[in-house]
Structure formats: structure tokens, C-alpha cells
Design a protein around this nucleic acid. Structure first.
Lengths: 227, 227
DNA sequence: CGGCATCCATTTTGATACTG
DNA sequence: CAGTATCAAAATGGATGCCG
């Protein structure tokens, strides 16, 4: 919010003054998985027009949360990346995502768009650091046309859009199968058995994969008091 | 957002559909420190009109995040409290607050309002669980007319508006002194020395107090790339 | 493709007046 | 107090059209 500030000397309000406007946190969600071009951003955010996208990006740039970069060769096209300050919004975005996974997901509505790329952040949201103790591995996921990867290093995780340079293991499936996994309709093992998913690469890394990410058990929101 | 949904099958977007509208997260911030009456909420949120406040509360109620309660005797007046689902937004709100403490606070602007009550959540945001190992104590804070307290129990913290029933220690100061502490202009020890703050109660609890809360070092937002 | 400018219908909001 | 009703101002969404 630019002119429309909350005018509160409060850390939460000051933060929301910067990133609380419509679309802004979703824009940051997109950028948290790596630099994106203007068109990619717009394609991911149906309903956000070019004018508003442009204004939001300018605002983030002005406030030191994002900056324009030129993608390395051979792309050389302009893109947007988060600054350090912007990247550090990850804990907040992940907390919102975790809440949503538990309290707000349910069935996919027919009007809703979906991009496998959104699951990249889901990996971070569901990552179980304890389960990754002593593990060092790079996994590459290929869901339909989208590729992303995650680098686990002993309790830390990095999850980015795009292919990995040297993946230890690769997991491939289509979008429908992938949605089935996130909805916990079936497990990865089951998907592999039926041929809906395929894996390749380091056997040990693949064996440890399933323990790394823990989806919260979905709950229904009721009028019950807080415990 | 009611009609205006992002229409994305994504946990972050679904969450923001529920709580991403203007004022909503600040409303939840208020309720995270205990039930509040309609008038209290409006007083804390300058600029939020009665109409919008009413609409937001209705929306939160409808979505199972808050509910109307009747305050226990002798008050008996209607108020609003969070449900379990609403309370679990605390990690997200605290993450936004932590980000703001590091990247967005700086000087207080002359137009900005301030309520000591906002610091209640700050206590949770800055709480260092490790430093609280083996500690069990209730602290009561009195800043001008506002009173709040925090109950520490071996790595867990609860922070609520209002007085504590059996505080182990009490800390008293005025708003200006309190702001000086949060701005790290001086320490609590210094404030006590100059008589700006006073403490009473269990000496051991007071001795451990200063280690419990760690304010992040403020940083400036620049265009630097994320590391 | 990457972006800005413009126009316009619809929503959201802010501010204030008003009622039980 | 706790809200409802009302209205003007601002933000948004969608559709272009334009330019490098």
C-alpha cells in the first residue's frame, strides 16, 4: 500500500503496508522459486492484468524487495528476482501455505487454475528437517511440461523452478497423478506400481524421499473455540 | 475475499482468499492476544470504519476463523474470539511481524498510531525457546494504561492482553520508555537505573527475563541480490 | 515478448450519519 | 456501546491499442 498505509507503528502492519495489497504476496510466492519473466508471472496469475502487474513489480522494486535482472545467456531476457529482503519473506509465505494445506484445501474447484510449479513451495512448506538429517541429495521433478528441483543438505532445503544440473534422482508423472499425491489419495509408491509415476537415479536417495515431506492432516474449520 | 477469489488451487492463494483482504490480518493480530469487543477492535484500528469492521467480522465468523462470545461475568458483553483455525494463523502473523522487525521498522512516523498491546505479539515473535529451557514464570507488563502478560513454560510461550492472575514478576514503565526499549536505544537494565522502569517480584524470574526475547538486528532494504 | 497508456464497469474502501 | 445504512473516493479487472 502506497498512499493507503495503515499508519501503525507495528511490525505486522508495516509489513502489510509493503506486501499486503492484492496479488503482492502471490507475486512473491512466484519469485521465491526463482527469477521469472513478466509473461511467466502473468501466465501464473490469471486475472492480474499487465497494468497492475507492472505497478506491483515497480512497487516491489522501489521498496527493495525485488529487482530487474537480465537472465544469463543464452536467454538474455529481462526478468524479476527477489532481493535478500524479499527472499526473507519465505517463512511468512510458507506459514500461510502450511495453514492453507491444513485448513483450506479440500477438493479442487472447477474454476481454479493449477500449476505444478506451485508445489515447489509446497516442498519447502512440508519439509521435515529432522527426517533429512545426514542426507545430501538433489531431486528433480517433472510434472507434464514443468520441471523443478530441490536440493536437500542435512536439514536444509532449497527448492527452485527449472531443471537441476546434477540430479541424484528424477521423479516423473503427469499433473493428475501429482494432484492425487497431494490430496493423499494415493502414495508415490502406489503411483509407481500402477505406472502413473516413474523414478530413476540413486536408489538410496529415492528410498529416503518419502519421509522428507509431511503433508498436514486436513481439518475442517468449525466454530470450536481455540484450545 | 468473497466474490473476488484468486481461483487458484494453491494453499497460499486459498489462505489469502480467506484472510488476504485489507484489515483482516490485522484483525486477527488483535484477536491473537485474546477476545476483544467491537469497540476495542475499532479503537485499535484507526481508519477501519464500523461498516467494514462489521463485514470483516461476519466474514471471519462465516469462515470459521472467529466467533462471537459473551465475555465472562462481570463483563457479560459480546466480544469476538478466534477459533482453533484462526489461532493457528499465529505462525503466519508472527512471521510477518519478524520480517517487519528486521526490515521495516526504523523510526516511528508522526502520523503513526501505537498501542502497547501490539507488543504482546512482539513478545511471541521474539521469544527464544532455547533461552527459556527449564523456566516457568508469568510476567506482567504495565505500559501506561495497558496491561498484558506472558506465561513461559519451558520453551513455550503464551502472551495475552490483560492482567495475569498470579504474576511471578511485574514490569512497569510508560509508553515512551517502552518504545525506547524496542528501538534498542537502551536496555531494560538502563531504564531501571534511571527510574524510567520499575520491576518487582521473583528475582530469579527477572534475572532470566532479558535473555528470553531477542529483537532482530534491523537491516536496510537494498537492491542487493538474495544470497 | 515486454511493457506502458487509456478507457470503463464493477468492487472495495473510508467516512459519516443514524438506530436500538 | 454495537452495529446498519448511505454515499463518495479509490482500487481493481478486462479490453484494447501502441511501441521497441
Amino acid at each position: 500500500m502506497d498512499q493507503r498505509t495503515y499508519n501503525q507503528y507495528c511490525a505486522t502492519a508495516r509489513t502489510l503496508d509493503l506486501v499486503g495489497e492484492r496479488w503482492t504476496l502471490l507475486l512473491i510466492r512466484e519469485l521465491l522459486t526463482g527469477p521469472k519473466r513478466f509473461g511467466d508471472l502473468q501466465a501464473s496469475l490469471r486475472g492480474l492484468g499487465t497494468g497492475l502487474l507492472s505497478a506491483r513489480l515497480k512497487h516491489l522494486e522501489q521498496e527493495g524487495l525485488a529487482r530487474r535482472v537480465t537472465l544469463p545467456p543464452p536467454a538474455r531476457t529481462p526478468a524479476y528476482a527477489l532481493t535478500e529482503a524479499g527472499s526473507e519473506l519465505a517463512p511468512a509465505v510458507l506459514a500461510l501455505a502450511r495453514w492453507g494445506l491444513k485448513w483450506a484445501m479440500g477438493e479442487r474447484r472447477t474454476t481454479e487454475t493449477f500449476h505444478p510449479g506451485w508445489a515447489v513451495l509446497g516442498l519447502r512448506a512440508c519439509f521435515d528437517a529432522d527426517a533429512a538429517a545426514g542426507l545430501r541429495a538433489v531431486y528433480e521433478f517433472r510434472i507434464d511440461a514443468e520441471t523443478f528441483h530441490t536440493r536437500i543438505d542435512d536439514g536444509t532445503i532449497e527448492a527452485l523452478h527449472g531443471p537441476a544440473q546434477y540430479p541424484d534422482a528424477t521423479i516423473t508423472m503427469n499433473e493428475e497423478t501429482f494432484l492425487g499425491l497431494t490430496a493423499q489419495d494415493r502414495t508415490l509408491a502406489q503411483a509407481i506400481e500402477t505406472g502413473a509415476a516413474s523414478v530413476s537415479g540413486d536408489a538410496e536417495a529415492l528410498r529416503r524421499l518419502k519421509a522428507l515431506f509431511r503433508l498436514p492432516a486436513p481439518s475442517a474449520r468449525t466454530g470450536d473455540p481455540s484450545p
